[in-house]
């Protein structure tokens, strides 16, 4: 291959790449770089910005609300990820059991995922509200008279957010697990049956190991998604009571757009960014391990 044709191949390749790279550069690479620059400035919309070095980072680390929001997000990740994996797998097994109406079951469990977070939140707020909410009214009729404050008690508010999140998104995980389950060769089970293995044993020694790949993928996707938590607490509790259910993304929004401290908000974004990138590396470890 001579120089000229090599040049030609390069030009051709970049022509294929150009449209995507243009958009990617402008809306992925550039914002990430710009975000770092903003985080070094004291700046609010429509105002002049001043360079402040790493002052935003140090003020962020001194801000107890930042730690609270970060902690809230981490807590949500740690609790919601296993919950969504476990429930997702359980439902997938149920749907995969070959009951009549499998398509209906699968669709019903998946249905909430296609609804918008705004709809989800407003329905759950009305279901969970005290005194007149559907859930509390139901509990009253079955003789449970105490009023439960699902969204006003910090711990219960987290439980409610978790329940709503599971209800909303678990269908997605279910679909991933279903696909994984259907890829397990029938012969595996038949062989085990001949050996007289119990259902539990079949699950432990065939199903679970075969799902390893899907499992890792789902765990990583779910972790990243849980870090992005915003809509559920913002729309269901407003981050309350007080700030006890405020997630990091909501705090970034409030710092940046309401308090107009774009610099501090950017430095918090960088923390979120660093965390998600860390998980990206973990994910690639998984991908490499799979091959």
């Amino acid at each position: 291959m001579n120089d000229q044709s090599r040049l030609l191949t390069n030009v051709k390749a970049y022509l294929f790449l150009a449209p995507f790279l243009l958009v990617y550069g402008l809306f992925m690479v550039y914002p990430i770089a710009k975000g770092f620059i903003i985080s070094l400035h004291d700046w609010s919309l429509g105002m002049e910005s001043t360079f402040v070095g790493f002052a935003n980072y140090s003020s962020m680390f001194r801000d107890s609300y930042f730690w609270e929001a970060l902690w809230n997000t981490l807590l949500f990740v740690v609790i919601s990820t296993p919950a969504l994996i476990f429930v997702g797998l359980a439902i997938a097994l149920l749907v995969n059991a070959g009951l009549k109406g499998t398509t209906f079951l699968r669709s019903a469990f998946f249905l909430p995922f296609i609804l918008s977070i705004s709809v989800i939140a407003s329905v759950w707020v009305f279901i969970l509200q005290p005194y007149t909410g559907l859930l509390n009214s139901f509990l009253h009729t079955i003789g449970f008279t105490e009023e439960i404050f699902w969204l006003s008690d910090a711990k219960l508010a987290w439980v409610s957010i978790l329940l709503a999140t599971v209800w909303w998104t678990v269908g997605f995980n279910m679909v991933l697990f279903l696909a994984g389950l259907q890829e397990i060769p029938e012969e595996f089970y038949e062989a085990a049956e001949m050996d007289g293995a119990s259902s539990w044993k079949k699950f432990m020694f065939i199903t679970l190991p075969s799902l390893k790949g899907v499992m890792l993928l789902t765990v990583v996707l779910q972790t990243i998604n849980s870090f992005k938590l915003f809509g559920q607490p913002y729309l269901m509790t407003g981050g309350g009571p007080g700030t006890e259910t405020r997630a990091l993304v909501q705090y970034i929004y409030e710092k940046g757009f309401i308090e107009q401290q774009m610099g501090v908000a950017s430095s918090m974004s960088y923390v979120l960014f660093a965390i998600t990138i860390t998980f990206a590396f973990i994910q690639f470890k998984f991908f490499q391990g799979k091959d």
């Binding site: 975000g35 992005k228 774009m262 974004s269």
Partner: peptide
């Protein structure tokens, strides 16, 4: 793995 949420500002 970069969520839009980290780029909003």
């Amino acid at each position: 793995m970069v969520p839009v949420e980290a780029k909003i500002i």
